[in-house]
């Protein structure tokens, strides 16, 4: 138990987890009462991105050099950490939002990959950049299914049964988690 508590503390989870869930609820609340279903999808995707942007600060330690010296198998631990973050944020968003669950979980998968990728590329403090940078333009564009490049760019707000959107989320999610698990944070 003690190693787990110490690990969570080293990842700022005690502060970031409530903050992240607060961010999710606050973002979803901004569309409370809006009748437009697409608006619910937009805020749900934003909520997932915001939640993971906050939790993404914990995708690495304060001192990566020190982490590397520890006799710990980091890759599985990093993957479990990011996976649990995605499940938590996605699950809470599904509970508070009226957007389709499939869309929310797809967003959680894609955005956690982006956050993990950004953490691996630019460091944990910039883990928020890629999910936010994809979420803002991605949700504001109308979700056109043609041509393919637009469908992929707007994957968060595509309909639940869109194959290109699902593939985009899976590639981003699995790819980002894998890169982060192998490389860690700089």
């Amino acid at each position: 138990m003690r190693p787990l508590v110490l690990y969570l503390r080293s990842r700022q989870v005690p502060l970031a987890l409530p903050g992240s869930l607060l961010a999710v609820v606050a973002v979803v609340m901004t569309s409370a009462g809006a009748l437009n279903p697409q608006r619910q999808v937009i805020t749900a995707c934003l909520a997932v991105a915001a939640g993971l942007a906050v939790l993404g600060q914990g995708f690495g330690g304060v001192d990566p050099e020190l982490d590397r010296t520890a006799a710990v198998r980091w890759p599985p631990l990093r993957m479990v950490h990011a996976g649990v973050a995605a499940v938590l944020v996605g699950g809470v968003t599904v509970m508070v939002s009226t957007a389709p669950a499939g869309v929310v979980l797809r967003a959680a998968l894609g955005f956690v990959g982006l956050a993990a990728l950004a953490a691996a590329l630019f460091g944990r403090q910039l883990a928020w950049t890629l999910p936010v940078a994809w979420a803002l333009p991605g949700v504001v564009m109308p979700p056109m299914s043609e041509p393919l490049v637009v469908a992929v760019l707007t994957w968060p707000v595509q309909p639940q049964d869109s194959t290109p959107a699902l593939l985009a989320a899976v590639v981003l999610g699995v790819g980002g988690l894998a890169v982060h698990a192998v490389r860690g944070t700089p």
Binding site: A16, A23, V27, L46, A53, V54, W128, V132, L136, V140
Partner: peptide, 19 residues
């Protein structure tokens, strides 16, 4: 460290209102 992402998402939601 949380200011930039929160600022980005919050300002985006604010700008979404007139739209």
């Amino acid at each position: 460290v949380y200011t930039p992402p929160v600022l980005a998402v919050a300002s985006f939601i604010l700008l979404l209102a007139p739209m």
